[in-house]
Computed example of a mutant assay.
Amino acid sequence: MQSKYESHRSIGLRALLLVESEDFDRDLKNALLTCGYDVYPALTSSHILKMVDNVDPSVIVLDVDRLTTDNIHSLHILNQIDPRPMVIFTEFSDEEMIDRVLKSRINAYIVGDKLPHHVGPTVQIAIARFKEVQSLKDELSETKRKLEGRKWIDKAKGLLMNTKGLTEDQAYQTLRKMAMDNSQRIDEVAKNVISFMQAVG
């Protein structure tokens, strides 16, 4: 199978196109090329995680009749360690297929439509929705990190106040100065201060 098809009007985005056989229907590949994507076909039976690592795709597009258990497993792992926008185009649909799609967290699920003027917007919307979800996840992770960091800072301030006789503001300024001097986040400094003070008793 050819490893890459270059679009004549590339928009700088790479599509990893997962198909079930070497003799796959070229309609979706051609639609993606028409929309400006550079297309990298690969078999669903290949090592998907390795393909993603090699291609670094902007979007993963599946052109399949059925999602196998192995496909779902690979996509689930991918979502955990290196999430990408994913779109599935299929000629068939049933409850089992929809259930598998939901479990794989695919961003768009299209039955039977591979026309370029539909494929382009579908993939574009899937990428946009993926980025929106990832942004919300990043915000949530950052909020959790800050809350956890605040706990370490408050604990470190308390130890400094008790052992050094500092006011709360003085304790905070001490942590802040240490963070600036060591080019570290203040919560990281707080953890180090706590570890050190607990070690020396």
Rank of each mutant, 00 (worst) to 15 (best):
K29Q: 15
K29C: 15
N30R: 05
L33D: 10
C35H: 01
G36P: 01
D38A: 07
D38F: 07
V39L: 05
A42K: 10
T44I: 13
S45D: 10
S46F: 00
I48K: 09
I48E: 02
I48L: 15
K50R: 14
K50N: 12
M51H: 13
V55P: 11
P57C: 00
P57T: 01
S58T: 14
L62H: 10
D63S: 13
V64Y: 00
D65R: 12
R66A: 09
N71R: 06
I72F: 05
I72D: 01
I72K: 11
H73T: 14
L75K: 04
H76M: 14
I77K: 14
L78M: 15
N79E: 09
I81S: 12
I81G: 06
D82W: 04
P83E: 01
R84Y: 12
P85H: 02
V87L: 04
V87T: 13
V87A: 11
F89L: 04
E91R: 11
F92I: 12
S93L: 10
D94Y: 07
E95C: 04
E95G: 15
E96R: 13
M97N: 06
M97Y: 13
I98T: 10
I98S: 07
I98G: 02
R100N: 14
R100T: 08
K103E: 13
S104D: 09
R105P: 02
N107W: 08
A108K: 07
A108R: 07
I110H: 01
V111Y: 02
D113W: 03
D113L: 00
D113V: 04
T122A: 11
V123R: 04
Q124A: 15
Q124E: 15
Q124M: 08
Q124D: 15
A128C: 02
A128I: 03
R129H: 10
F130A: 04
F130I: 06
K131G: 03
K131C: 11
V133N: 08
S135Q: 08
K137I: 07
D138Y: 00
L140H: 00
R145W: 00
K146I: 14
L147Q: 12
E148R: 10
